[in-house]
Design a protein around this nucleic acid. Structure first.
Length: 1149
RNA sequence: GGGCCUGUAGCUCAGGUGGUUAGAGCGCGUGCCUGAUAAGCACGAGGUCGGCAGUUCAAGUCUGCCCAGGCCCA
């Protein structure tokens, strides 16, 4: 028996259970041992948040290609990984502990804090593992690498140690968003949470020219407290600057951007280019102390050129205080300006008259003081968005330069660019666009972070002589002279973290103690070390590393361009040059490294095209797609009506349930309640509102709790989800996700395919029961001897195999899936549709049909396995023979057998399908339903040479159109008129400018005459520029129907149906109607597909006569062994047959 | 403000190297078929291919500028 396929969600659970009990994934890996490797790197996700739809996309992509390559004969190791370090982790822990800032964390204790971080990174690991399983992502979770594990940290240390030894690590300043009251850096995400609209002073200040006390530069700022730390003024080199009379100073001159003069009420006297101002010196506003020089020098108090200068606001001359702005710092670094930082980390002035005052609070006094000195030109106020601490919202954040460690990546810019050249990016534009651009503008990597939970920077400094060392491992530290302070009795992974690592010390050669710097590192550096750190290399895992470097394939979303794609490439560029490879016994990898192909994924968006985001709530939980249920926080809301559930407005379109109710319950199998979805002011993420009485009704506490939320109908399941991401558009364009879109793709592909299988299963079982079909036996006939339809579908299948293979080898997923959907359409809407009667028959043709469909389906199961692994597995399980592997994922991807491809047949069949369309359209216009047989259809082909092709396949056309005969019109002119036009593509190249004139000329000629001339070998066209002789293949002859014929036309030709009905045809039509009614009754009675019956037909003579004339047909179509006419048997039912009252009786036989 | 991407039917998307009836699915309307039924088929309505210039015999396709949206940076 061929089993029927379960509903998607159930089918998927069954397949998952099968994979588990039969260890299929493990066996796939075992089977791959010894095969050539295809290397895949998992970009580690972080498990301290729930997985969302974007992660589903990534995981699908990371699954499809390894599955494909496995089936193509490669060994694909798939080591999972978890990203566990970094600021987001700390933030989550701070939230959980309700503390914030350096002091609060230190007060809480660094040891328990780090332990909390470890717990936090795996809070949602079960959700991740469950999603990974349900979506069918095969990845080796038990062997996952974890970035905080000691072996991983020590690999990162090795990398840093190498960079240190090469002199590529240096100390400098990095401008960060700083929370002075908390003494902490905030992440970009945290800064984004704290923007408020505030009023700030906006002042324009005179900077007096050092050479000419009458001239002043005007600069504008909203942070007066940064003025004492000014070191330069920046101008745009191409910007026009105006010299104006200073209304506040007799004989004075002001310089500002010409475009801004009017807004200050100033009239330009002359203008000069910014470039001519560069190098002018000015008098510092204050003198609190010397400038701290940068490595390049300290040429402060000078006019410099800056690319960031705009003339949108202010004076078009930018006050530059590198300690308090990133652009300013960049300029300072580039120009060797030096730094002034008269604000301490607590945000207070460290020198001068305002010493001890909080920076922002000193603004007023600074302005007053400048006014007294005559330096204030104008005072305004601006209302703008300014960030505050998201936890303490009265504390403003400031941009603040902190000492930081850098990697001199700029020294590798050229190599990195060359490396990038060798990477195959999908889509291609990333190479020169987003990524190439980023590399060309490379700045040194700011490596260190003044935080707690991260890989500790492994640099130790001697307190006395300043000597520095960067040991590459824990063991190397222990081997140092008088090494001490190693954590005892602490988890080995924690021991390599703060604070335990901070006590490790040893003696310098000078005898003084060496202690570690306090910083941890950017967690992007962690992830970029993943190719070797996942194996703990070079301290361990030598064979594993060497076998898996570099990667053939990685894939992540586009936001990783500056993240993982960069860290991987830059670290590999710096560390794995040929010399290093030789030193470590790694075969030189050359370029690219460490990845060859990268698919850059677009974002998953809502139906408005907005990126799905947690805070907006404009997304659907993947669980609803996969299993139709998810857990949400329910909050009581007495404003809601009973029986309604409140969601965020943004969630409604994504949920896409329309007016249908959703079902809520407290426990998974508990009391359930159907509720209508309404909009409510829901604040938290993943939450709903519910009336307290409703909460109580389902057994939940009245003040809320976690509940189960179920959507109506069958959930689409993992394969439908995967198929959407594979087949709806190219992976790099954004996907607008909705349940509706998932279901649409599901219907078009999965359900259609499933229907074909169910059809096969029904008839294969019947035939098997009669001993007519045995898939484990030998096929009765080779494919070449079978029916045209069989040969056609085999041709199509092998074409699809060839094309899909080519596409997948080129990483063109979308192209491959388009081939597959096209094939399911061919299979369902033509092969099965036109072959139905063959499956009802018997004998060799039945066996051929069953064999063909069986072969096609089992090959197709292999073809779809990488994309929809569940459906593929279920199909394979039903179709495979005992001798074949038990899982489709243990089988090879099919090879295209081009000897089976009959390209002419494929072309001819396309023509027939086109003609069938014409016929159906003609019938529709004539209002003749298909069940009514017609005498004939007359065909005029645009290309008469195709006549024999049509004749060969005409029986298909006869059946599809229900006509008795096809005529090829001898005199085409009787039915159609001709129109001729040039083949623009062919002629355009030859004629060039004359093209238009020739087209006009030929259009004016008698089409019939042109056609005859062409038939005779060519036509001469006279036009303004002379005479052109056109060959037959340079002119397109189009035909259109003439007169009132029941005709339809396409480029293939014209098809005319005869509309004349006689009594015999009517009788035939009646019989087909009657058969249809009997089949309906059989179905109502739920009769088996091969159940024989006795049938009585009683009614008007016209019906009885018709049936009498076609007794054999009626009997065979309805499996009637006894036909009674003009009397009733059993409980006869009245049916309508074309307006006739007919009684049908059925009894089993 | 900069970079990259996108803009084609009401919606979601296809449309190598420029070539003259711009396609599909969904939705809508009409009709049909069906012993595959959680289906299927056909027909119809629906398009100034974001806008404006330019190159060309010929532009959805190439170039420039603009507009709108998305993402990443500032």
């Amino acid at each position: 028996m061929f089993g029927r396929l379960s509903s998607p969600a159930q089918l998927e659970e069954e397949v998952l259970a099968f994979w588990d009990t039969r260890r299929i994934f493990a066996r796939v890996l075992e089977q791959g041992a010894g095969r050539p490797p295809f290397v895949f790197y998992e970009g580690p996700p972080t498990a301290n948040g729930t997985p969302h739809n974007g992660h589903v996309l990534t995981r699908v992509m990371k699954d499809v290609f390894p599955r494909y390559k496995t089936m193509r004969g490669f060994h694909v190791d798939r080591k999972a990984g978890w990203d566990t370090h970094g600021l987001p982790v700390e933030v989550e822990v701070e939230k959980a502990l309700d503390i914030h800032g350096r002091e609060a964390i230190e007060a809480y204790g660094l040891e328990p804090f780090s332990r909390k971080c470890v717990d936090s990174v795996f809070v949602y690991v079960r959700e991740w593992e469950e999603l990974t399983r349900q979506i069918g992502f095969w990845v080796d979770l038990p062997k996952a690498y974890v970035t905080f594990h000691r072996s991983y940290v020590e690999s990162v240390w090795w990398a840093l140690s190498r960079l240190f030894e090469k002199g590529l690590l240096y100390q400098g300043h990095k401008v960060v968003w700083w929370w002075p009251q908390g003494g902490t850096t905030l992440s970009a995400g945290e800064v984004g949470m704290g923007y408020k609209e505030v009023d700030d002073p906006a002042i324009t200040v005179r900077f007096i020219d050092a050479e000419d006390a009458n001239t002043a530069f005007l600069a504008w700022t909203t942070t007066p407290w940064t003025l004492p730390s000014n070191v330069a003024l920046a101008v745009g080199e191409d910007v026009d600057y105006a010299l104006c009379d200073d209304p506040g100073r007799e004989g004075g001159t002001l310089i500002l951007a010409a475009a801004r003069a009017e807004s200050y009420g100033l009239v330009p006297r002359t203008t000069v280019k910014g470039a001519s101002l560069v190098g002018r010196r000015y008098v510092p506003l204050y003198d609190f102390g010397p400038v701290t020089p940068t490595p390049q020098g300290s040429g402060a108090f000078i006019v410099v050129a800056g690319q960031h200068v705009t003339t949108d606001t202010g004076a078009g001359i930018v006050h530059t205080a590198p300690a308090f702005g990133e652009d300013d710092m960049d300029v300072a670094r580039a120009q060797g300006l030096g730094i002034l930082q008269w604000i301490d980390p607590a945000g207070k002035f460290s020198e001068g008259p305002w010493k001890g005052r909080f920076c922002k609070e000193a603004d007023k006094d600074i302005i007053t003081e400048l006014k007294e000195r005559g330096l204030l030109f104008k005072r305004d106020q601006v209302r703008h968005q300014y960030p505050f601490c998201w936890r303490a919202d009265s504390d403003p954040l400031i941009q603040y330069a902190r000492p930081a460690w850098f990697i001199r990546t700029t020294a590798f810019k050229d190599t990195a660019l060359a490396n990038n050249q060798a990477v195959e990016w999908h889509p291609e534009h990333i190479k020169e666009g987003r990524f190439g651009d980023f590399l060309r503008n490379n700045v040194d990597w700011a490596l260190s972070r003044e935080r707690f939970w991260g890989t500790p920077l492994n640099i130790w400094t001697c307190e006395a002589c300043g000597k520095r060392e960067a040991p590459a491992s824990y063991a190397a530290m222990k081997a140092k002279p008088n090494a001490r302070g190693f954590a005892e009795g602490v988890d080995e992974h924690l021991a390599v973290h703060k604070p335990w690592i901070d006590t490790v010390a040893w003696d310098c050669t000078c005898g003084a103690p060496m202690k570690r710097v306090s910083e941890v590192i950017d967690c992007w550096f962690d992830s970029g070390c993943m190719p070797f750190a996942q194996w703990g290399w070079p301290h361990q895992g030598d064979a594993e590393f060497k076998a898996s470097y570099p990667a053939d394939f990685i894939s992540e979303a586009v936001d990783q361009t500056r993240g993982w794609f960069y860290s991987l490439l830059m670290i590999a560029t710096m560390l794995f040059d040929d010399d290093t490879c030789k030193e470590y016994g790694v075969a030189p990898v050359g370029l690219p490294r460490p990845y060859k192909h990268c698919i850059v994924l677009g974002h998953v968006c809502d139906m408005e095209g907005k990126k799905e985001s947690k805070s907006k709530g404009n997304y659907t939980s993947p669980n609803l797609v996969l299993r139709g249920k998810t857990r949400l926080d329910a909050f009581p809301d007495a404003n809601l009506a009973r029986g309604t559930v409140g969601l965020k407005a943004a969630q409604l379109p994504s949920l896409d349930v329309g007016d249908e109710p959703v079902t809520l319950s407290f426990t998974e199998d508990g009391v359930s309640l159907k509720t209508k979805v309404v909009v409510a002011d829901v604040k938290p993420k993943d939450a709903v509102h519910l009336h307290p009485d409703d909460l109580e009704a389902i057994g939940a506490p009245r003040d809320g709790g976690k509940i189960w939320f179920r959507t109506p109908g069958e959930p689409p399941g993992a394969d439908a989800f995967r198929w959407l991401f594979c087949a709806s558009n190219a992976p790099w364009s954004n996907t607008r996700l909705s349940i509706r879109a998932i279901r649409e793709g599901q219907r078009e592909f999965l359900i259609r395919l499933r229907n074909v299988y169910q059809f096969f299963a029904i008839y294969a079982d019947i035939a098997k029961g009669k001993g007519h079909f045995d898939p484990s036996g030998k096929a009765p006939r080779p494919a070449s001897q079978r029916h045209l339809l069989d040969r056609w579908i085999a041709s199509r299948l092998n074409q699809v195999v060839a094309n899909a293979t080519t596409s997948m080898d080129a990483y063109d997923l979308f192209g491959a899936t388009k081939e597959l959907s096209g094939f399911v359409d061919d299979l369902s809407n033509w092969y099965v549709r036109r072959s139905r009667e063959r499956f009802w028959g018997e004998g060799t043709d039945l066996e051929d049909a069953l064999w063909t469909l069986h072969e096609v389906l089992s090959t197709f199961a292999r073809l779809i396995a990488p994309f929809v692994p569940f459906t593929a597995e279920a199909l394979w399980r039903e179709l495979r023979t005992e001798a074949q592997p038990e899982s489709v994922h243990l089988v090879a991807w099919p090879d295209a057998d081009l000897s089976q491809v009959d390209a002419t047949l494929v072309r001819d069949m396309a023509l027939i399908r086109d003609l069938a369309s014409l016929g159906l359209a003609a019938r529709a216009t004539a209002k003749l339903k298909v069940r009514q047989p017609l005498h004939e259809a007359t065909l005029v082909l645009a290309d008469p040479s195709l006549q024999s092709a049509v004749e060969g396949l005409s029986s298909l056309l006869l059946d599809e159109l229900n006509v008795h005969r096809i005529d090829f019109a001898a005199d085409a002119a009787k039915y159609v008129q001709f129109a001729v036009k040039p083949d623009f593509k062919k002629l355009g190249k030859r004629l060039g400018k004359d093209m238009k004139a020739v087209a006009t000329a030929i259009g004016a000629m008698d089409p019939l005459a042109v056609k005859r001339a062409l038939d005779a070998g060519g036509v001469d066209v006279d036009y303004a520029g002379g005479t052109a002789r056109l060959a037959p293949d340079e002119v397109v002859v189009a035909i259109t129907p003439i007169g009132e014929w029941q005709a339809q036309a396409s480029t293939a030709g014209v098809l005319v149906i005869s509309t004349v009905l006689d009594d015999a045809l009517r009788a035939e039509g009646l019989v087909r109607e009657l058969v249809n009614r009997v089949q309906g009754l059989r179905k109502d009675l739920d009769l088996g597909y091969s159940q024989r019956i006795a049938l009585s037909v009683n009614g008007p003579a016209v019906v009885l006569d018709a049936v009498r004339a076609h007794q054999a047909l009626v009997a065979s179509e309805t499996l009637t062994t006894e036909l009674v006419l003009g009397a009733n048997i059993g409980e006869a039912k009245m049916v309508d047959v074309d307006g006739n009252e007919v009684f049908l009786g059925i009894e089993l036989r």
